[in-house]
Each structure stands twice: as C-alpha cells, then as structure tokens.
Design a protein around this nucleic acid. Sequence first.
DNA 1: TCAATAGTGTCTTTCAGACAGTATATA
DNA 2: TATATACTGTCTGAAAGACACTATTGA
Lengths: 252, 252
Amino acid sequence: MIPPEPAPERPREDPVELEALRADHNSYPKPAVTTDLVVMTVLDADLRILLIQRANAPQRGSWALPGGFVDVGPTPDEQGEDLDTAAHRELAEETGLPVGTAFLEQLYTFGAADRDPRGRIITVAYYALLSPTHAKSIQAGSDAADARWFSVQRDLPAMPLAFDHDQIITTALTRIRGKIDYAPIAFELVPETFTIAELRTVHEAVKGQSYDPGNFRRRFKRMLTDGVLEPTDQKRKTGTKPALLYRFARRP
Amino acid sequence: MIPPEPAPERPREDPVELEALRADHNSYPKPAVTTDLVVMTVLDADLRILLIQRANAPQRGSWALPGGFVDVGPTPDEQGEDLDTAAHRELAEETGLPVGTAFLEQLYTFGAADRDPRGRIITVAYYALLSPTHAKSIQAGSDAADARWFSVQRDLPAMPLAFDHDQIITTALTRIRGKIDYAPIAFELVPETFTIAELRTVHEAVKGQSYDPGNFRRRFKRMLTDGVLEPTDQKRKTGTKPALLYRFARRP
DNA sequence: TCAATAGTGTCTTTCAGACAGTATATA
DNA sequence: TATATACTGTCTGAAAGACACTATTGA
C-alpha cells in the first residue's frame, strides 16, 4: 500500500480559467433531464398509483407518470433548481397540494439511450406517499379529468404505459415493499390519527399479503414503548367495538 | 373512486410530428450529466476507496472520485450509451480491468444546482466492489501516480475532496453497510476462494465493528445448506491451523 | 510445550408466526 | 343475544449474542 500524502488545500478557481471551462462545458451535446413521480396512496385497502393521460405527443393518450423537465438556468450563474426541488415542484403542480405535504424520496435514475423517441432524456425518478386524506382531495380538487388513481393489483397489470414507466413503477413497488418492514413509511399512508387495524391494512395493501391481527399488534406495541408512537384519548367507531386512535410521533 | 377506463392502444408516432418534438426538445437549456464511481475494496482488513488526483481545473490537485461525462450522441438517432454502460466504461478506463470484472450498482443521483462551478452538472453515482486480487493489480498496472487507495477510517476523515464527493462517499458507505447484512455483497470483496475468517474480516472492515468468530461461523454455515456457498477441498495456511477454503456459488 | 486460530456446542434473549381466549361495541 | 372486531396471552421455532470448550497447526 502506498501511504497517501497529505491532501493539498482546495484551490481557488481562477475566474479567467473558469470562463474557459464553462465554454468548453457547453461545447458537448447534453441530455435532457426530467423527474418522474410514482405517487402512491392506499384507498379502500388498495394500493394505488397516480397516473395522468398524456395530452401531447409522444404517446398522446397513453397513461403515464406525472413529471417534467428539471429547470436548468440559462447561464452558469443561474443554474436553476436542485433535483429534489424539481421533484417537489412537480408534485405540487400535479396534485395541487402545497410543497411539503407528502413524503418524497429519490428512487432511481433511468437512462437507457433509447427510452424516449424525442431524443436523449434521462429521468430521475422519485416516489411520493400520500395519506388518504390528501389523496381524496386530489380527486375533488384539480381538474383531474386526466389524472386518476389506479389500483396496482387490479388495473396496472393489464395496462400499457408510456415509455419505460412500467419499469419505474416496478422499481418503486419493490422499494416500498422492502422499506416498509424496517422504516416508518406506513405512517405516511394513514390519516393524522389512526387505529392499529388501519395501519395493518396499509401494510397488507403494500405487501399484498395479510397479517395476523394479534401478532401485528404486538409488533406495533413495541413502537409505543420506543416513543415512535403515542396514543390519543380518542376512539374510532368501526361498526363494532371502537378502536383506540394513535398518532405518529414524528420528532421524538 | 372513479373507475378507470380501459387504456387506449399505444399510439404510433407520426414521423413529421416527431421531428417537431425533437426540435422543441433541443430548444431548452440542458444540464451536463456525468457518472461518478465509488470504487471500494478491502485490503489488510481495511476498507478503502479509490481516488484520483485531478489533473485539470476545476480543483486541480484535489483528490476526487473517478468519473466522467456520459456519452450522448450528437443526434436523436445516435443517442449514445446507457447510463449503466457509461459507468462500466468509466470503471474499465480508470482501473484497466475488463468490463464485468467488478460488481457495479447505481447509488444515487446528485443534482444540487451549484455542485460544480463549471455550470449545471448532474451526476449519477455508482459504487463498485473489487476483490483484493483485482484491487492489487490496479496499483501495479496502470500508471497510478495519480490513483490511490485511501483508507476510509484512517485517511478520509481529514481529507478535503473535490465538489460534493464527500457526500457521495458517505452515501455509498451507508448503502453497503446496510446491504451487507442481507445481500451477498461481501463475496465481491474476497478472492475467488476464501476462508470464513477472511469473509468475517470483510464484514468487520465494512461495518467497522468486530464479530464473534463462533457466531459468525454459524450464520455463515446456514448459507452452506442454502446452496449459496460450497466448500472446496483446499485449505489456506494461516500461520496456525489451516482453514478450509470456500467458494461463492454465484448461480445455483 | 505453548500460542493462536479453526471449529463446535450451550445458554439466553428476542421476535415472528400460529392460534386460543377474553372484552366490548353494534345490530 | 349474536356477531364482529378489539385486545390479550401462550406456545413454538428461528436466529443472534455471549461465552465455554475442543482440535489442530506452527514455532
């Protein structure tokens, strides 16, 4: 092993040299970059994804993921928005909800050379989780003639999607199905306060399997002692015995 | 819930219209896109990362991750290489090893607007895992005056890196430290055949913690019965009692 | 013979799955 | 009163951590 030398100080950039670099940087062809969103919610014990019907070519009329081009400033000094900001902006535009309402996380970047007929377009995919409360307000709110919730289990399998969006959705499903077992993402898919049964239903809808109510409750109760959750003093009427409502303690 | 209509057939693109789309596509500013590589190995029970010293501005002289621009074709019909292909190509160029020698996986895409002084550059980061056999051949092989292995624990904390490369490395470390517990990535960091102690050393170097040899062996032996591993009939002389060598059954 | 590591076995705790049983609401 | 669900408890097995113990090599 060669012992590493002490690292040099980070050099200041020479403004003149930098100008040359910037000119050089602009002399090569570049790809377009978009963000696409896999927006998910659980409605009626069913995992759903928000799709929009494309109003323009290419693939006009096809159902597709919401998304759009990342804002890149016109000059090196106006460099536009961060990737995360672009994703948040798209989400707000498509759902009508204020920025920060939903859980949003980068998923994967899809960059096959031929994935879009318009030319070279690389897309940074994000997934978002919406509570049913917010999800329902989308239906009602915006002019959603061309934006609908599709059931992952019932609708998606037989549905042709634009571009490689089926692959993006598959990646998102794999991600949340793995992550729900160890990260607190199920809480993003229930209302502000919720019963244990409602939380279990979310897990079941996401994983596509059922859980024993007793065992799920036990696992759940460990989060109570960990301070991740707190009980409220309210109950939800379910038709039979009312169930205690809990709240996710976002910041302990 | 609005019941979704049957999805329309995927429309054929009109060539004339497509031409217009392509022209439109080229009328907006675009970012440059690079891939950066976090190439890791374990040498002398120590997790290491390959860094190169930048020969050109910006940040000439700084240590940085290997990487480069994604090849984007000059026209919509010559759209260049896939992202994964670009990453594989960069890895081969930087290490001198043939494509396919190392494990390579997409990590995360970094797209802060101001992350590069040259202008808007989005980088799709990948991480690669090299066996010590291959890692050593890099040192010897290429003119590696400006490419070296740095110890994650000993060297990196005090080392200033170019751009946001420290953040990329942190993300890579978090990823493999999580993944090594459930995915067979440790086998990418040992020679073709290896002892249990060698595999344990890799786990310890990656996680930065020590494991009880007996317990590790037991966990390991379950992989034997699962067919993930197979014993060889060879032993490695260790200085004391020789240890049996095993082989990773890549495809069962 | 001693030191060091290979390799085995035991005890305990934790947690998940299966499942029985009790409590309390509505119809 | 019947039924459905909330909620509790018990049994079992898988797996991890702590740790004692035996086996086999080289010095």
